[in-house]
Write a protein that binds this DNA or RNA. Structure first.
Lengths: 262, 262
DNA sequence: TCTATTAGGGAATGATTGTTCCCGATTATC
DNA sequence: GATAATCGGGAACAATCATTCCCTAATAGA
């Protein structure tokens, strides 16, 4: 019914706006009332007790592995697979250009099933975003792990970024960049996540520089903070350039970028 | 003989329709139920005979200044002012999130008037894009002009980029970055323009490096091509980071970036 | 003054959108 | 077997979207 819809929308919006300001922890009705319904749009932005959809999902998986299955008919599709498929569409087309129809056909689910698993399109996007950042973080850290010292680890991270910015993967685009550009101006929930992710990445790079300071591979006068921020610009910029399909020569580009550590 | 605006439009459309390829994935906003009206997205990528709407406009203005006025009621609004207003909305919200209603209220025009002046929403965007790149190019070149040698000119360009990536202007965003991220994957016309603009910027930076080579302010071993491409990544990345509202310290950031010229 | 032509403006239109509703299916528990 | 609870799937819904239509106004030329 129309009234119901309007009320639900107004409610969600109100909660979101409220949490933007005061930062109330915990969100209503997430765990106890509806264990399979994850209203992450109402997640408190600055609370440290954010339980993103995906984390809640894993928790549910753990519970089911402990032979305590939630009541009702079990979910037939694999959530991660579905999110990966949603991810692909969102990365290629962005949020607004992706319709529910695009989403359902990509996820191979019916409309009703999507709305049973997620509150709305925004929640699907948020869940996809969490999954994306999780996967990317894993990839970046494993690239860093293949390095003898701070400098080499940083070089590997930059090379990994160039590779992901190129070819099919590059054309598909980065969801963080896409969200920053398309949504951060109008969507506080997205903006907070983008900001957090950029800060995480920056801290990671700054950490590698500090490691380089310690092991002697990076001169001590190289400012970790400033250099890391510039490198974030470089990596985000590479995703933009890669999306526009300009070729990027990894070794050459990274070779030049490594001058920043001189 | 006088070529009216409408004729110019029809001509442009004919060229675009003729050069329509196999239809590399339709434009998301385009409707299949308006067969007599084709979106601009079918423009041939590499045709050099594309005459964008706005260029035709300027031609018409020039002609009218030569006291040869086109027939019919004259336009009452200033095209550049209207485009500046459209620009602002497109930069803030992106293409898909900007409705015709947003556009008409921003441009202070009625729906019919917008559609009299432009073929469709896509054409408004394209015209706004052309105006944006024109204005930005002007700003960048004037920033470069305030420099004694190649190195100083390049520093000024980078500083100008940081300034534009910050604060309100930064939050508003760059239309080139926005177009690259949101549209270049599905819209060949936009992609071609984004690519061209990035190349233009890159060539400009490479030119400044060459000037530095010549005047001795930049060592000859600094590779102009590779360094310029990395600097394009930096500038585009700054726009992404600025859109996400992370603070950017111009002098510090540029100070680090100038190491690339060592 | 009449005609041709274009601009301004807003109502009308039809397609598409995100979302809800409903029904049958599947599971656990009683 | 009955009940409760959830899922899968698709039809139905209202809102919104981009676009067209139509009428009036303004200008040039005859």
């Amino acid at each position: 019914m129309t009234v119901t819809l309007r009320c639900a929308l107004r409610g969600a919006r109100a909660v979101e706006q409220a949490s933007k300001g005061d930062g109330v922890g915990g969100f209503p009705g997430c765990k106890p009332a509806a264990p399979h319904f994850y209203p992450i749009t109402t997640t408190c932005l600055y609370s440290e007790t954010i339980i993103p959809y995906y984390a809640a999902m894993q928790k549910a998986v753990r519970r089911s592995q402990a032979s305590v299955r939630p009541p009702g008919r079990p979910r037939e599709f694999d959530m991660d697979t579905a999110l990966d498929r949603a991810l692909r569409v969102f990365r290629e087309r962005g949020y607004h250009a992706t319709s529910i129809g695009d989403l359902t056909s990509a996820m191979r689910l019916a409309t009703g099933s999507v709305y049973k698993a997620f509150r709305d399109k925004h929640a699907v996007f948020l869940a996809a975003f969490e999954r994306y950042t999780g996967l990317r973080q894993e990839q970046t850290r494993s690239a860093a792990a293949r390095g003898e010292n701070g400098r080499e680890r940083l070089r590997n991270v930059l090379l990994s970024y160039v590779e992901h910015s190129q070819g099919i993967e590059g054309r598909r685009g980065c969801l963080v960049v896409g969200s920053a550009v398309e949504l951060s101006a109008v969507d506080p929930a997205i903006r907070a996540r983008v900001e957090a992710q950029l800060k995480t990445n920056e801290d990671f790079i700054a950490g590698l520089i500090h490691e380089g300071h310690a092991d002697g591979s990076i001169p001590g006068h190289v400012d970790a903070g400033d250099t890391a921020r510039l490198m974030i610009c470089i990596t985000q910029g590479m995703r933009v350039v890669g999306k526009a399909r300009l070729p990027l020569d990894g070794p050459r580009l990274v070779g030049v970028a490594m001058k920043l550590l001189a």
